[in-house]
Design a protein around this nucleic acid. Structure first.
Length: 269
DNA sequence: GTCCATGTTCTTTA
DNA sequence: CTAAAGAACATGGA
């Protein structure tokens, strides 16, 4: 489940190896990962160079001279660099040959991922809230005041804040000691400051550890992240809380598994 | 064979 | 009308 830290890890690795490379050829094994379906990827990529690489929320932005290639990893997407001689893993949907004789490969068994051609950097932020790493408590407070949904549900909403998914929403709420079902607009100013700080700390620490390799996530050179070993609540149902040893509980919020410590994250009223 | 994992988008409900 | 909840998508693994 690539979320902000996993995407950031991929982007940093790609930046070192991909910037300056020119696309020499393109093979699209599954054209249905390209959106819109009418976009002519080969025409727009072959002969063009990658000028820069950025991340926006969970989106990977490869800047070309005339457009932006926007890649979303969905749930199981992998973006790797490999020599042409390396065998293709199943579900490899796109292969771009590069001028340094390596290949940029995109595989995605579940095909929730996508590859888009965008006209401008502004269009890459369409429907996305601010970056959580540059967010002030005041801004977060204003955003959360607009909804009465459970805070867990609000944190998953990319149009509110961009980049958190199920793992880091749960980990951030645990670090802030906030119950995931608390209505977003009922958090105290103190809780919001705590949450804002916790989100940043959790995300920075996860980035430092190369993200979480839960199921399919790997970085550009095929290496796994290490942050899954440091999760306090995610996928730890029934195991003792790292802080108070109470068994971690699991509830469903917004039809997603939500993990929390009933003692460290009490319902606040 | 059943159930579960989840990011996004579309549809339905309140 | 709007906000929120729910369904659907896809596929491998337990």
């Amino acid at each position: 489940m690539p979320e902000l830290p996993e995407v950031e890890t991929v982007v940093r690795a790609l930046r070192r190896q991909l910037v300056g490379q020119t696309v020499t050829c393109l093979t699209l094994h599954r054209p249905d990962i390209v959106r819109p379906p009418t976009a002519d990827l080969a025409h727009n990529l072959v002969g063009h160079s990658f000028l820069a690489i950025r991340r926006r929320g969970k989106r990977i932005l490869l800047l070309l001279d005339h457009a932006i290639l926007c890649i979303h990893l969905g749930m199981t997407g992998q973006l790797t660099l490999a020599p042409p001689t390396a065998p293709h893993k199943p579900h490899t949907h796109l292969v771009a040959g590069l001028s340094n004789a390596t290949q940029l490969r995109f595989r995605d068994p579940r095909r929730f991922g996508s590859v888009r051609l965008l006209p401008s950097i502004e269009s890459a932020s369409q429907d996305l809230g601010p970056e959580p790493l540059n967010l002030s408590a005041t801004s977060l407070s204003r955003l959360l005041a607009t909804t009465r949904r459970a805070i867990k549900s609000a944190l998953l909403d990319q149009s509110l804040v961009a980049g958190l998914g199920n793992i880091y929403a749960d980990e951030s709420l645990f670090a802030a000691r906030i119950h995931p079902l608390t209505p977003a607009n009922r958090l105290s100013p103190m809780q919001i400051r705590q949450l804002n700080q916790s989100i940043k700390r959790v995300l920075r620490r996860a980035i430092r550890h190369g993200g979480s390799s839960i199921r399919d996530y790997i970085s550009v050179n095929g290496t796994s992240g290490r942050f899954q070993d440091l999760h306090a609540v995610y996928a730890r149902t029934g195991q003792p809380c790292t802080c108070c040893h109470t068994p971690i509980a699991r509830v469903i919020v917004s039809s997603r598994s939500t993990h929390f410590c009933p003692r460290c994250q009490p319902v606040s009223c």
